[in-house]
Design a protein around this nucleic acid. Structure first.
Lengths: 221, 221
DNA sequence: ACCTGAACACCGTTCAAGT
DNA sequence: ACCTGAACACCGTTCAAGT
């Protein structure tokens, strides 16, 4: 193994196997029954002792965050795809639809979207990447004159979260309830009939400071 | 006491006092530290044994629902006020701003907005009232030609939830972050530049059926 | 009729003992 | 170096004993 792979420290073969088994079990169970499945059950489905689960993920939250990280990577890939496939508003809303769907199909990503997630360094980096690529999609749609100028990439991500929140109550009622609220967001972001917006677009720098302040203040024993 | 007051069954004096003390303590603690404060702590602040808490509210969820019910009553009152004070879009968005603020100041209302809340008969009735009065506000704004015709009162309530979800991450960053996203919703609901929306406005009848289906299926041991 | 605190089940987390 | 299951603390809920 070359020096480039130093990032992922080498693990014993069984440890590596157990880790991936735990992640797979967690993904399955979180998607099936939400975030309140017990770690004991995840460990059982993965075929390991519960002590092993806590060795790999020292807290349940860390396990959730590992799953969230995988989902964000998925979403980043989708954004990159749309960046090549289309342009302007089409690419932006194509991506937003994809992310809304991922969010609806897995509550893990949604429930922990925005707030404490950024405390985890890995998730933080993935989030930064996501903001960057969404920023590119947004800028192109704005340059084309199709999307209003007074919103930023973090607004876009928060709006996807908003769409998921609205659609959540209608989950079992329709196939893709988020389509309706994404339609409203499309009209909201359109340059047509855009009124002056209160406040300024949130920035990643602000987000970072907010997280650091929380980490400093919160004595999460 | 006349036959009209049969709704609220009479309680012993100490029971009545304990019940209100519990509710007051719950309101305080939920607002301060979120829904994860323990019932034991609520009981302690109310100055009663924890057994007493469970006698009045047989489950923690019931206690939360009682608080939610009070908040909904508050919001209904605000809607009625705006109905008298103003007209058209002004009244609708004045109300929406008020509800967004209540939602931001107390996570209890927000976290349990939309889904399982309607299983509780009291909350269900309050919710029905809320939908009715919001429907009136909405209809007037639509008649005035200021708000698009293809949305219903439940859309409005879900959009307020959405605004709260978007603003949540920015809570400590700005004073009233929801104002920004309510601004976007205003543009989305405006007749100006409204594109055809996928799906149909959700109805209360659908909501009721959804809840009944959940109650029938869910064997919440 | 209502109050109380001890007792129970469950879950996240830790750790001594194994390989 | 890693695995394991028993043990601990905490929380929602129940209940026998009190008034």
């Amino acid at each position: 193994m070359g020096p480039m792979e130093a990032a992922t420290k080498p693990r014993r073969a069984d440890a590596e196997r157990n880790r991936t088994a735990l992640l797979a079990a967690a993904i399955e169970l979180f998607a099936e029954r939400g975030l309140d499945v017990s770690v004991a059950e995840i460990a059982k489905r993965a075929g390991v002792g519960q002590g092993t689960a806590f060795r790999h993920f020292p807290t349940k939250e860390k396990l959730v965050l590992a799953v969230v990280r995988l989902r964000i990577d998925e979403v980043i890939a989708a954004a990159a795809e749309w960046e090549e496939r289309a342009d302007g508003a089409e690419a932006l809303f194509g991506f937003m639809a994809r992310m809304a769907e991922v969010q609806s199909s897995d509550r893990a990503l949604f429930e922990s979207a925005g707030t404490a997630v950024l405390a985890d360094p890995e998730v933080r980096e993935a989030h930064a990447q996501l903001v960057t690529v969404v920023g590119r999609l947004l800028k192109r749609a704005q340059k084309a004159g199709e999307v209003r100028d007074d919103v930023g990439p973090l607004d876009v991500l928060l709006l996807i979260k908003a769409v998921g929140a609205a659609a959540e109550s209608l989950q079992e009622l329709e196939a893709r309830p988020w389509r309706r609220y994404l339609g409203l967001v499309r009209d909201a972001l359109s340059t047509e009939g855009a009124q002056r917006l209160p406040g300024r677009p949130p920035t990643r720098a602000q987000f970072e400071r907010l997280v650091e302040a929380k980490l400093a203040a919160g004595e999460n024993c």
